[in-house]
Write a protein that binds this DNA or RNA. Structure first.
Lengths: 206, 206
DNA sequence: TAGATTGTTAATCGATTAACAATC
DNA sequence: TAGATTGTTAATCGATTAACAATC
């Protein structure tokens, strides 16, 4: 997969395309044009074609895109065609919610370890995963080839947890804590902070 | 507040500034320069100054920004200096997590109604809020001046719920369901879909 | 005053959209 | 063939960054 230089904006749209294409698959729809995709996703068809064309020629002129083929290709591009293990740190309500949510929808991108420091929680199971103490972060991440950490601890602990994840070799962090994490440039961070989202939404009310 | 034409990129950065400024407030730091902010948030100082300057002259040349004053101003800009009621639809793990999360951190932007159709859940309380059946969405939203809906129902139900929220007069939707919602242009939607975030993150691994 | 830092203009950079030849 | 739709180039639009006069 040769990548000239793909902007984050493009990468963020790929999962949106994928999600809708999978819906089409479920409805047994075989082909789709950029025009139809644009209609449904409220996007410019030229943008969709251009986004896809960064990665290859996936369509056929005069016909459109073959849904199943495009689904596979986007999965390859996003690297979710192979297993990718995630660790969740913080087994509060949000953490538990995510580990359930995750189990049902994403088999290849799944949470394989959960950590929390509460004595009540250590040793109990969420689905099939036993909650471990934070002491075991480093060893477990290395042993189980975990490359992504999901942070759902309270804000004051988030940076410390991030440092330990980075130190253990994690390559990406999904951060639900309301702080700006500082990590080395070889580690990617995505923020998913409810407060930030709600505040942004508030701006547009009225 | 005169607004020439503010891009979403700018609006999305304001809560990030706010969050860090509030941290400075907690540390009793009185003033801060765009350079310092840029260092901590990993952003270009010129961008920070420009973002703020869209809304007024909040700083002092040679000095920087007064933290407390800037916090108040950003709150005003985002319209989170006044009460804004939210309804949560879907009292699953994620929904419960959000209603707790929310209660602690945001007094003015708070969840004041929770809906679910599960017989087990209706009538039980989350914090101080009683879970109501979906039947009561329209009446409750109108009676309580709810302007924001937070959707945490399963994907297949999300569009139906969105339609009902819009029909009841909601102006903004925070959508946690993995679907692209279709709403009229006077309603704002923000998507907070874990799957999309994780898939985007996967692209950057290795 | 000298040093620091804003607000803002101008320059650069990048992303989106339009247009169209290629072709199914 | 005629109509449809891609992939891609060129044009447009918008966002970020640099630079600096104003001024605390």
């Amino acid at each position: 997969m040769k990548t000239p230089k793909i902007s984050e904006a493009v990468v963020r749209r790929l999962p949106v395309y994928l999600r809708y294409l999978q819906q089409l698959q479920d409805s047994n729809i075989r082909t789709v044009s950029s025009y139809e995709l644009g209609q449904k996703l409220d996007m410019n068809p030229a943008q969709i074609r251009k986004d896809l064309a960064y990665f290859g020629e996936f369509g056929r002129k005069g016909i459109g895109y073959e849904v199943g083929y495009l689904v596979e290709k986007i999965k390859q591009i996003l690297k979710i065609d192979r297993h990718l293990n995630c660790a969740l740190i913080g087994a509060g309500h949000l953490g538990i919610a995510l580990s359930n949510y995750n189990r049902f929808t994403q088999e290849k991108l799944c949470i394989t370890a959960i950590f929390d420091n509460s004595v009540d929680k250590i040793g109990t199971e969420v689905g099939t995963i036993k909650i471990q103490p934070l002491d075991e972060i480093e060893r477990t991440i290395q042993d189980r080839d975990i490359l992504i950490g999901i942070i759902t601890v309270p804000a004051p602990e988030a940076q410390k947890v991030a440092d330990r994840l980075v130190g253990s070799g994690v390559k990406g962090i999904l951060n639900f804590a309301p702080v700006s994490l500082r990590v080395p440039s070889h580690v990617s961070v995505r923020n998913a902070d409810l407060t930030t989202e709600l505040q942004t939404l508030a701006y547009y009310i009225d």
